[in-house]
Design a protein around this nucleic acid. Structure first.
Length: 678
DNA sequence: AGTGCTTTAAACAAGT
DNA sequence: CACTTGTTTAAAGCAC
C-alpha cells in the first residue's frame, strides 16, 4: 500500500529533524515536484541554517499569534485613560519609541525554500535549540515592540489628556518635557523586558519542545482553514474572553492574521508593522480600531466591571461609569505608581503569553494526534482509537495525496483485532527502529533518536518523507515488532509499506534493497519454517556493526543512548518523555509548568535505574514469544554504542521486550502490497 | 588514504 | 512463463 522512492530520480529528500518535518507536514510536495537527488547534495551550512531559522521562526510565530488574543485583552486592561480621550493627537510620530531595526528585518524565504531545506537532513539539537531560541527571541521581541508601540500610544494619550486638562499654553513645554521623560521611561521598560527575555532564555525557560509538541503548530499555521482556526481559537480563548465583549471580533481578526502570516513570507513585516496596509485586519491592533470598539460600547471598559475598578490592585467601587472614569483619571493617572503597575502588568502579560503559547502547543499536539489517527485508514483495528469521536481538519491526510491506498481486493483485510492488553499508543511500535542513516546525522553529531521516530510515526505513515533509518534498522524493527520476532519477506514488505508512506513508491527498488540487506547482514537470519522461511534478527550480530558515534554534548549522550535503538525496553510514555528529555533545552518545563521538568528528571532517573537492572531483566515476558526465540535468543550485552563515551548501565542492548501493543501490526501482515502506485 | 557502512542496481538461481 | 525469494557482485557516496 505504500510506495518507496529509494531509487532513481524521484528520490524523496531525506527528512530533517522531526520538528521541521512536522512544520511542513501539510505542505509536502508531490513527487513530481521533488528535486532530484537532494539527499546527497550538500547545501552549504549557511543555507541550511538560514532556512531552518525561518522554519523555526514560522513555528514560533504561530505560537505567538495564538497568544495575541490574550495579550490584547491584557493590554486593554492597561489602556487606562487613553481610550476614552475625546481628543487624539497626531503628533505621535515624534514620540515613537525607536526600535531595533535589526530585529525587524528578518530574512525572508519562501515556503518552498523552507520545505526544500526541511527535506535535507539536519541540524543537531544544539543547533536547533540555538536557532529556536534566537528565533523565538526575535518573534517575542517583535511582539514586544508592537506591544510597546501600543503602550506608548496609550500613554501618550494619557499625557494628552493631562495636557488637555491643564490648558495653559505655558504648560505645553512642560508637558513636552514630560513626554520626553515618559518616552525614556518606555525605553527603559522595553529594555527591561528584553533583559527579562534574555534572562529567561539563558535559563532555558524560553524554549519550546521538540518533536511532538512542536508539530502541532504547523498545522495550525498552514494546514487549517480559517474557520477551523477560528473554532480552535474560540475553544482556547473562550475561558479568557468570557467577559470580553469584543473578544469575538479580535478572535477572528487574529486568526486571519495568523493565516496570512503563516502563508506568506511577508508575515514578519506584517507583524512588525501593525499599520501595514496589506491587510487591513491587522489594524485591529491600532489604537484607533480599539477605541472605535469601545466607542461602540460606551459603557464598557476593560478596567471597569461590576461597578468595580479593575485596575490591578485597585478594586475601587465606582457606582457608575462616569464615576469610574473620574476615578480612573484621578487615581490612575500617569505617575510612578501607575507606570510601575503597568510594568508589572506587562510582565504578567508576557508570562501569560508564553503560557498560552505552550498550552496551545499542547492542545494542537493533542488535536494533531487525534486527527492523524482519524485519517489513518488502518486506525480502525488500532487500540485507543480516539478519533471516531473527533473530527478535525483534513489537512494531515492531504499531506499525502496518494496515502494508503485501500486494498479492497484483499481477502485478509485488516480484521485481526488487538489481542493482548490495553495498548498504549501506536507510537510505541517505532521506538526501537535503530540507527539512523549516519550520513545525514553524524554530520551534526546528534542523531535523530528513535523517540523522534516514535513521536513522528504518524508523520511517516502519511507523509512521503524518507525515514532517516537504514534498511537494516527498519528490517530489524519490523521483525522485532512482530509477536514472534520473525517475519517472512512479504511481511517485512508489508511492514515497510504500512509504516512509511515513503515506501509506497518504487517498490522494486526498496524491496530489492530489503532483500539485499537481509542477505548481506549476518544479523538477519533466515529460518526455515513449516510454511516457508522467516527472517529473524540476531541481536549480537546487529550490535556488532560499527557503533554510531554520538559526540557533542555529553549530557545528551546518555539520553541519546537511552532513547536510541539499542535501548528497546521502554514503554511509549517513557519514550515520548525521553524525547523531551533528550534535548532538555527544548523543553518549556519551567515555564508555568514546573512539573514537566520534574517529570523529565524523574523519567531520566527511572530510565537509568531501569538500565542498571537490565542485565538481570533480559528475559522479557512477551507473551507472543515464539519458539524462534530459542533459536535466536535475545542477547544482552554491555557493548557500548560508543566505546569512548558509553557508560555501562546505559549501554544496554536491545532486548526482545516486545510489547503486546505491537500486535496490531499483525493485522495487516497478510495484506498484499498494493503497488499500483509505481 | 583506507576502511566500513549503506544504498542502489543488477545478474543469477531456485522455487512457486 | 511470470513472479517471488534469495544470493551475490559492483559501484558510489559518506563517515570515521
Amino acid at each position: 500500500m505504500f510506495q518507496c522512492v529509494f531509487s532513481s530520480g524521484v528520490l524523496q529528500p531525506h527528512s530533517t529533524s522531526c520538528l521541521f518535518k512536522h512544520l511542513f507536514y501539510h505542505s509536502a510536495t508531490p513527487a513530481s515536484q521533488k528535486q532530484p537527488e537532494p539527499i546527497y547534495s550538500k547545501k552549504t551550512e549557511i543555507q541550511r541554517q538560514t532556512v531552518r531559522a525561518h522554519s523555526v521562526k514560522l513555528f514560533v510565530f504561530s505560537a505567538l499569534q495564538v497568544a495575541r488574543q490574550l495579550l490584547l485583552q491584557q493590554q486593554q486592561q492597561q489602556q487606562v485613560s487613553g481610550l476614552k480621550s475625546p481628543k487624539r493627537n497626531d503628533k505621535q510620530p515624534a514620540l515613537q519609541v525607536p526600535v531595533s531595526v535589526a530585529m525587524m528585518t528578518p530574512q525572508v524565504i519562501t515556503p518552498q525554500q523552507m520545505q526544500q531545506i526541511l527535506q535535507q537532513q539536519v541540524l543537531s539539537p544544539q543547533q536547533l535549540q540555538v536557532l529556536l531560541q534566537q528565533q523565538q527571541a526575535l518573534m517575542l521581541q517583535q511582539q514586544l515592540q508592537e506591544f510597546y508601540k501600543k503602550q506608548q500610544e496609550q500613554l501618550q494619550l494619557q499625557l494628552l489628556q493631562q495636557q488637555h486638562a491643564g490648558k495653559q499654553p505655558k504648560e505645553q513645554q512642560q508637558v513636552a518635557t514630560q513626554q520626553l521623560a515618559f518616552q525614556q521611561q518606555l525605553l527603559q521598560m522595553q529594555q527591561l523586558q528584553q533583559q527579562h527575555l534574555l534572562s529567561l532564555q539563558r535559563q532555558g525557560l524560553l524554549t519550546i519542545q521538540p518533536g511532538q509538541p512542536a508539530l502541532p503548530l504547523q498545522p495550525l499555521a498552514q494546514g487549517m482553514i480559517p474557520t477551523e482556526l477560528q473554532q480552535l481559537w474560540k475553544e482556547v480563548t473562550s475561558a479568557h474572553s468570557a467577559e470580553e465583549s469584543t473578544g469575538s471580533n479580535h478572535s477572528s481578526l487574529d486568526l486571519t492574521t495568523t493565516c496570512v502570516s503563516s502563508s506568506a513570507p511577508s508575515k514578519t513585516s506584517l507583524i512588525m508593522n501593525p499599520h501595514a496596509s496589506t491587510n487591513g485586519q491587522l489594524s485591529v491592533h491600532t489604537p484607533k480600531r480599539e477605541s472605535l470598539s469601545h466607542e461602540e460600547h460606551p459603557h464598557s471598559h476593560p478596567l471597569y466591571g461590576h461597578g468595580v475598578c479593575k485596575w490591578p490592585g485597585c478594586e475601587a467601587v465606582c457606582e457608575d461609569f462616569q464615576s469610574f472614569l473620574k476615578h480612573l483619571n484621578s487615581e490612575h493617572a500617569l505617575d510612578d505608581r501607575s507606570t510601575a503597575q503597568c510594568r508589572v502588568q506587562m510582565q504578567v502579560v508576557q508570562q501569560l503569553e508564553l503560557q498560552l503559547a505552550k498550552d496551545k502547543e499542547r492542545l494542537q499536539a493533542m488535536m494533531t494526534h487525534l486527527h492523524v489517527k482519524s485519517t489513518e485508514p488502518k486506525a480502525a483495528p488500532q487500540p485507543l482509537n480516539l478519533v471516531s469521536s473527533v473530527t478535525l481538519s483534513k489537512s494531515a491526510s492531504e499531506a499525502s495525496p496518494q496515502s494508503l491506498p485501500h486494498t479492497p481486493t484483499t481477502p485478509t483485510a485488516p480484521i485481526t483485532p488487538v489481542t493482548q492488553g490495553p495498548s498504549v499508543i501506536t507510537t510505541t511500535s517505532m521506538h526501537t527502529v535503530g540507527p539512523i542513516r549516519r550520513r545525514y546525522s553524524d554530520k551534526y553529531n546528534v542523531p535523530i533518536s528513535s523517540a523522534d521516530i516514535a513521536q513522528n510515526q504518524e508523520f511517516y505513515k502519511n507523509a512521503e518523507v524518507r525515514p532517516p533509518f537504514t534498511y537494516a534498522s527498519l528490517i530489524r524493527q519490523a521483525i522485532l515488532e512482530s509477536p514472534e520476532k520473525q517475519l517472512t519477506l512479504n511481511e517485512i514488505y508489508n511492514w515497510f509499506t504500512r509504516m512509511f508512506a515513503y515506501f509506497r513508491r518504487n517498490a522494486a527498488t526498496w524491496k530489492n534493497a530489503v532483500r539485499h540487506n537481509l542477505s548481506l547482514h549476518k544479523c538477519f537470519v533466515r529460518v526455515e519454517n513449516v510454511k516457508g522461511a522467516v527472517w529473524t534478527v540476531d541481536e549480537v550480530e546487529f550490535q556488532k556493526r560499527r557503533p554510531q558515534k554520538i559526540s557533542g554534548n555529553p549530557s545528551l549522550i546518555k539520553n541519546m543512548q537511552s532513547s536510541h535503538a539499542y535501548c528497546t525496553p521502554l514503554n511509549a510514555a517513557l519514550q515520548a518523555s525521553m524525547a523531551e528529555n533528550s534535548i532538555p533545552l527544548y523543553t518549556t518545563a519551567s515555564m508555568g509548568n514546573p512539573t514537566l521538568g520534574n517529570l523529565a528528571s524523574a523519567i531520566r532517573e527511572e530510565l537509568n535505574g531501569a538500565m542498571e537492572h537490565t542485565n538481570s531483566n533480559e528475559s522479557d515476558s512477551s507473551p507472543g514469544r515464539s519458539p524462534m526465540q530459542a533459536v535466536h535468543p535475545v542477547h544482552v550485552k554491555e557493548e557500548p554504542l560508543d566505546p569512548e563515551e558509553a557508560e555501562g548501565p546505559l549501554s544496554l542492548v536491545t532486548t526482545a521486550n516486545h510489547s503486546p501493543d505491537f500486535d496490531h501490526d499483525r493485522d495487516y501482515e497478510d495484506e498484499p502490497v498494493n503497488e499500483d502506485m509505481e
